[in-house]
Simulated assay, not measured.
Amino acid sequence: MKGVPYPATVAILALAFSLASAYDPSPLQDFCVAINNTDSAVFVNGKFCKDPTTVTTCDFFFPGLNIPGNTAASKLRSSVNLVNVDKLLGLNTLGISLARLDFAPYGLNPPHIHPHGTELLVVMEGALLVGFVTSNPNKIFTKGLNKGDVFVFPIGLIHFRFNIGKTNAVAFAGLNSQNPGLITIENAIFGSNPPINPDVLAKAFQLDKNVVDYLQKQF
């Protein structure tokens, strides 16, 4: 049998390496409880490991997801309580996090992306309209969800949740990252610091510059 040509071998190895390095590697120890070390500028997963001899049960425990979020504090009438590695240090290197989402009637979790994680959502109470948009040519997948329904949002794609009911809604989301990250679209575009040049946004969105100025002031 003839051997695989060298260029093809290199291409296959490169592809295998890129797939293998696309996500955090599997840990080689039982756990690596994070310890915040502000004296170092080294950020692999952004954390260092706590001395295993000082680890306690509390490092793997987080209370309070039974408590509803304060939707009244948000203009969008929604609340998200994300339990990531910053709140539950035992999540470090385990590649998972969890969130509770609360919605007042007609509350919105606005279009956003998680650059580091896919999200699996389950509705516990109420009714939600959810959806995500693919990369070009930007097809939208949207669905009305009720109690017990599950929906998945692929990693890095813009997605949203909207309470279409007249009662409060509650959902829980699991993400395959200890720190999935968050980029809220309107905040990133109109609320960046320093702000994006208004001329750029006016041309990109085909808006009057005064409208762009108004939107930037909102964020």
Rank of each mutant, 00 (worst) to 15 (best):
V130H: 01
L101H: 04
A173Q: 07
N84C: 02
P194A: 05
G95S: 11
A169T: 13
G191S: 04
L157Q: 07
T71W: 14
L207D: 09
T167C: 09
V122R: 03
V123S: 10
E125G: 06
S78F: 04
P5V: 03
V33T: 02
Q29G: 00
A22S: 13
V130M: 00
E125M: 14
L98Y: 13
K75T: 09
L128C: 13
L76E: 12
P180H: 05
I35W: 03
V212Q: 08
P27W: 10
Y214H: 15
K217Q: 15
V44Y: 03
G90N: 02
P198E: 14
I196R: 03
Y214C: 15
K75A: 14
T118R: 00
P195R: 12
R161V: 00
A16W: 07
V123Y: 10
L121K: 06
G64E: 15
T57Q: 14
V4W: 11
Q218V: 09
Q178R: 06
I196W: 07
N81S: 14
P154W: 03
R77A: 15
L207E: 04
K87Y: 11
V44W: 00
L175M: 14
A99Q: 01
K147Q: 08
G3S: 03
L120G: 05
A188Y: 04
A14R: 00
A20V: 01
V133D: 08
V200Y: 12
P115C: 10
Y106D: 07
I96L: 13
E125H: 11
D149P: 05
E186Q: 07
A22L: 12
P154G: 07
V212A: 11
P52W: 06
D208W: 12
S177H: 08
K147I: 03
V44N: 00
K209D: 09
D86I: 04
R161S: 00
E186G: 01
T118V: 07
V122I: 09
A16H: 03
L101P: 01
K143T: 10
K139S: 12
L91W: 08
S74E: 07
N210D: 15
L98A: 07
Q29E: 13
T71E: 14
D59P: 03
S74K: 08
V83L: 14
Y214E: 15
L128D: 14
A22W: 09
L121V: 09
T142G: 00
F141W: 06
F151T: 02
A104L: 12
P115D: 09
F31M: 00
G165P: 12
A171I: 10
N176K: 00
N84Q: 11
E119Y: 09
L157Y: 09
I185Y: 01
Q206V: 06
G126P: 15
F17K: 00
L182H: 01
N163F: 02
G181D: 10
H114N: 05
P111D: 06
L19I: 01
N176H: 08
K143Y: 02
I113H: 06
F141L: 14
N138E: 12
L175T: 01
P115W: 05
V200Q: 08
N81Y: 15
S74R: 11
F61K: 12
G144F: 08
L215R: 06
G95A: 02
A72D: 13
A171K: 03
L28W: 07
V10D: 14
